[in-house]
Simulated scan of single mutants.
Amino acid sequence: MDESVRRAMARLPNVPDLYGWLHLDRRGRWFVNGERITHPRILAFMARNYAVDDRGCWFFQNGPQRGYVSLEYTPLILRVDSAGDLITHTGFPVTTIHRICLDEQGSLVADTPLGAGVIDDHDLAWALSRLRHGDDPADDTAIADALALPGGTATSLWFTFAGDSVEVGRVDADALPAALSFVREPSAS
Score class of each variant (00 low, 15 high):
residue 77 I to S: 01
residue 3 E to W: 12
residue 51 A to W: 06
residue 148 A to G: 09
residue 119 I to H: 01
residue 59 F to C: 00
residue 150 P to W: 04
residue 159 F to Y: 12
residue 152 G to H: 04
residue 110 A to W: 14
residue 65 Q to G: 08
residue 184 R to T: 03
residue 61 Q to W: 01
residue 103 D to F: 05
residue 138 A to T: 11
residue 59 F to Y: 11
residue 42 I to S: 02
residue 101 C to R: 13
residue 101 C to G: 15
residue 166 V to L: 10
residue 52 V to H: 01
residue 92 F to A: 14
residue 165 S to F: 02
residue 91 G to P: 05
residue 13 P to E: 08
residue 49 N to H: 08
residue 18 L to S: 11
residue 55 R to M: 01
residue 6 R to A: 04
residue 83 A to I: 06
residue 91 G to L: 04
residue 187 S to D: 09
residue 143 I to P: 15
residue 160 T to P: 00
residue 72 E to C: 01
residue 161 F to V: 11
residue 76 L to T: 00
residue 9 M to P: 06
residue 35 E to W: 05
residue 55 R to L: 13
residue 106 G to T: 08
residue 47 A to Q: 00
residue 146 A to R: 14
residue 157 L to T: 09
residue 112 T to S: 11
residue 81 D to L: 04
residue 106 G to I: 13
residue 140 D to S: 13
residue 129 S to P: 06
residue 137 P to S: 05
residue 31 F to Q: 02
residue 135 D to M: 02
residue 108 L to K: 05
residue 38 T to E: 15
residue 166 V to H: 05
residue 181 S to K: 10
residue 2 D to M: 14
residue 176 L to I: 05
residue 44 A to Q: 12
residue 98 H to N: 11
residue 55 R to G: 01
residue 149 L to M: 09
residue 37 I to C: 06
residue 87 I to H: 07
residue 136 D to N: 13
residue 149 L to Q: 11
residue 122 H to I: 05
residue 22 L to I: 04
residue 160 T to H: 14
residue 38 T to I: 15
residue 24 L to F: 00
residue 67 G to T: 10
residue 180 L to Y: 01
residue 19 Y to N: 14
residue 85 D to R: 13
residue 86 L to Q: 07
residue 78 L to W: 10
residue 172 D to T: 05
residue 141 T to R: 15
residue 156 S to T: 09
residue 65 Q to H: 01
residue 109 V to N: 08
residue 14 N to G: 14
residue 58 W to R: 00
residue 38 T to N: 06
residue 141 T to F: 10
residue 33 N to V: 04
residue 146 A to C: 12
residue 120 D to E: 08
residue 42 I to N: 09
residue 184 R to H: 14
residue 177 P to A: 08
residue 85 D to W: 06
residue 29 R to E: 15
